[in-house]
Simulated scan of single mutants.
Amino acid sequence: MQSNPLRIGTRGSLLALAQAHETRDRLMAAHKLDEDAFEIVVIKTSGDKIQDRPLSEVGGKGLFTKEIEEALLDGRIDIAVHSSKDMPTVLPDGLALTAFLPREDVRDAFLSPKAKTLTDLPQGAVVGSSSLRRQAMIKRLRPDIEVVMYRGNLQTRLRKLAEGEVDATLLAAAGLKRLGQDKEITCLLDTETFLPAVGQGAICIESREAEEKTLALLAAIHDEETQIRLDAERAFLAVLDGSCRTPIGGLATIDGGTLHFKGVVLKPDGSEAHDVQESGPVADAIRIGTAAGEALKARVGPDFFADI
């Protein structure tokens, strides 16, 4: 390993730091290195700075990665640790997703002091969510529910819920589990009816493509199954030009040598939704995701996305 510490770039939230520490700890164990062989570099992103508006109005997913990728490109950090669901489908030239950690729970978690499930909420209840996908899916299941914009890190959202600002909220189960706060979960939503975001529950590592020494280090902690699943999901998203402005869900699972993919695209108000399923050999993950995206795009037509 290089004599200088490997610099790990991350956002500064507790969840982002937990993901960076998990990456560091796995590298330490894999290569029998001490903690001082690594340096965690916190980078504030535009997505962290803007808290008063939906991300869809100010630039979408790239707001959580732009400044970190700039630090990668100019050499201030050596690798970047991200939540896969925050990653745009097109990366800057010279950068690539070069490792994935084993995937956590992919499901959305329902949190409420007032009801055991989303369907049990009283008529006209208020649910907080900053995700257009979650908003659309909530409205698809419960058109009577009022969904309000709900930004902030996980701790802020839990505090707002406790203070009664909303009756319920939905969060990624993986984030709650990684922070040891899964006791806050009221129930987990079945992926059959509530498809997660593409990449949900997966930590990805981005690095410069040309640095073979870094790539060799990362290879020791890379989880191939997670990559195969994400290859399909991100291919699906790429066809649909998915961003924070498009309510899209997608999930790939592997059973033996077969990859199964399910995807959905919705109108923001939940009034219309279209589902797709594709399966095939795991070696064809990208083709399967692409085929699912193309089938859905052909079915809904260009007008479906025009309003989004």
Rank of each mutant, 00 (worst) to 15 (best):
I77M: 09
R76Q: 12
A125H: 05
R76F: 04
L118P: 02
I145F: 03
D78Q: 13
L101N: 11
S129T: 02
T89W: 13
R133F: 01
D86C: 07
A80Y: 02
P143M: 10
S129N: 04
T89G: 08
R133I: 00
T119H: 10
P88N: 11
V126G: 02
R151S: 14
K139I: 01
V127I: 12
D144I: 06
R151C: 07
A99Y: 06
S83C: 07
V126P: 00
E146K: 03
T98F: 03
A71C: 12
L73E: 10
L118S: 08
A115L: 13
F110P: 00
T98S: 14
L91D: 06
S83M: 08
I79N: 07
K116Q: 10
R107I: 10
G152A: 10
A80E: 05
V127M: 02
A109C: 15
S129L: 00
L154W: 05
R103T: 14
Q155W: 10
T119G: 06
E104P: 05
P122N: 06
R140K: 07
K139L: 15
R142V: 07
K139N: 02
D78H: 14
S83A: 12
D105E: 15
Q135N: 05
K85C: 07
G128Q: 05
M149V: 01
K139S: 01
A71Y: 02
T156G: 04
G128L: 03
M149I: 01
M149S: 04
K116N: 13
S129W: 00
P102A: 13
L95E: 12
I77H: 05
L95G: 14
P88Q: 09
S129V: 00
P88W: 09
G152W: 04
L73Y: 03
T89F: 12
D86I: 02
I138G: 01
A125R: 03
D78G: 13
D120F: 07
S83P: 03
K114T: 06
Q155G: 04
A109W: 02
K139F: 02
D78E: 10
L91G: 10
R103K: 15
P113C: 14
A80F: 09
Q123W: 09
L97P: 01
Q123C: 12
D144Q: 06
A115V: 06
L73P: 01
T98I: 15
D120W: 05
G152D: 01
L132C: 05
S84V: 05
P113A: 15
T156Q: 14
E70N: 14
V127D: 00
T98W: 03
K116Y: 04
G94E: 13
L72C: 13
H82V: 01
H82Y: 15
V81H: 06
P122Q: 11
D93K: 15
T98H: 10
R76W: 03
L111C: 11
E146F: 01
L121G: 04
L141E: 11
R133W: 01
F100I: 02
K85T: 00
Y150G: 00
Y150C: 04
T156N: 10
P102W: 14
L121W: 12
V147F: 00
A71V: 07
R151P: 13
N153R: 08
G94H: 11
L154K: 12
K116I: 08
S83G: 09
M87I: 09
E70M: 14
Q135Y: 01
S130A: 11
E70H: 14
L121C: 07
